[in-house]
Design a protein around this nucleic acid. Sequence first.
DNA 1: ATAGAATCGGAACGCACGCCCCGTTTCAGG
DNA 2: CCTGAAACGGGGCGTGCGTTCCGATTCTAT
Lengths: 188, 188
Amino acid sequence: MTPDKPLRADARRNRDRVLQAAEAAFSAEGMAVPLDEIARRAGVGAGTIYRHFPSKEALFEAVIHDRIGQFADEARTLSAAERPGEEFLAFLGRVIDQAMLNKALCDALEAAGSPVKPSDGVQRDVWEAFGALLGAAQRAGAVRADVDVSDLRALLSGALAMERHARDSDRPAGRLTGLLLDALRPRP
Amino acid sequence: MTPDKPLRADARRNRDRVLQAAEAAFSAEGMAVPLDEIARRAGVGAGTIYRHFPSKEALFEAVIHDRIGQFADEARTLSAAERPGEEFLAFLGRVIDQAMLNKALCDALEAAGSPVKPSDGVQRDVWEAFGALLGAAQRAGAVRADVDVSDLRALLSGALAMERHARDSDRPAGRLTGLLLDALRPRP
DNA sequence: ATAGAATCGGAACGCACGCCCCGTTTCAGG
DNA sequence: CCTGAAACGGGGCGTGCGTTCCGATTCTAT
């Protein structure tokens, strides 16, 4: 079993086209986009997608993997920063901002459905990194101690829901999320 | 056009059965429940439901109408209470608690999708009432002035998302929502 | 060039849902 | 009763999705 047998030229080309089309489509509409639509945009048939990715979810993960990994890396870096408390809150704000521009990110971040698939290394990785940054912020005294990483997942979902509504009703972005993040600070 | 022509006995009986089954089903699973399932539970055919309600959404509204109306009435009453500020925050907490026990309430409260149907009097009514209570709380100085009723919708959606996650990860209920509601108070 | 395998594409499948049709059953007034 | 109209119910339609299949096509090693 050779993990990376050289692909035929046209196969490699089509695989890249699919990834590119999927990135654009998922970014705009998230998992809700039909697979046929991705195939159409990539100029290939639906069967071609399944030759390269075993399922729609696998394609989604292939597209989102790098982006999510960047967040995990950033979180790990910031854990060792000088003032992890401030970095933590600013970082969450950036994550939310990015997710508002990229529906795929929303879906990936909110996909912490009850039964977290153990096979899903990306999810595990990103939340471990977020947890590390949260811990650092708490040790720095900038975030309440009674918050854990599962609270963080809930918080992110809530903030994303709030920002979606804010956008739909042309209210200034980030206000409610700012209130929520402020509420994470310990009582003064 | 006689608005309430006396229904035949079996028709009335089946209509009630449908409403009862729909209430239970919607309460447990929200709008996601298939209509066939409601028909099965009511012991009728799917066609019978459509004889009494023109669409699934109409059935949903018939089921949720009273419940939503109760919240609107309560909000109006509390607007005239002695300390509307405290009442406002406690009221929001109760609404969220109830919605966590009743997925139909969640769907109804979050159904403030971008294009609010003008025909939907129930939605309009409840949000007007919530807005009145919000205004009273603000006049009493208990809630920040820069919050409006569309913020309230966003806030409710966010809180419901957070509480859903909290339940899935067996975290104590209401903590994050409490934080969020506290953040609505003016700076001390 | 040619054979043979890898790849392609889109028609076809299975499923689930909201909704409608229509032969059959049940009610209620004369 | 008895009969016409009202109501029933479940099978069927249209839709949209993810997925699979297979004949046609294209690439590459010889």
